[in-house]
Amino acid sequence: MEHITDSQGPLWEVFTQKKSGQPYQHAGSLHAFDKEMALENARDLFSRRGEATGLWVVPASEIVAVKPGDAAPFFDPADDKIYRHPTFYEVPEGVKNL
């Protein structure tokens, strides 16, 4: 694939919070030349109908992710620890509010 310098500015990832108190979720990505422009573009692109009460923008180059090929071994330490789930435990009959 041809690689040409992009004239649209670097890529940013956008996270929106739909309601106060809720977690921020990835909404999509956009191009912008600086932080202010990234925030304004994110507002115009991802919250034209009041979909956001909060916005984060992060340069895409700063995001660190698990490589898909490494995901299985990376996450497998949790696989054999069923005692981390409440369903692992037996609650004696007659005991309430546990």
């Binding site: 694939m1 041809e2 690689h3 992009d6 649209q8 890529l11 990505s29």
Partner: peptide
């Protein structure tokens, strides 16, 4: 258009291209 350009860019093609 912008959502879709971004989706295509994840496949390795630039917006300019």
């Amino acid at each position: 258009g912008l959502y879709l350009y971004s989706a295509a860019e994840t496949l390795g093609i630039s917006r300019d291209e």
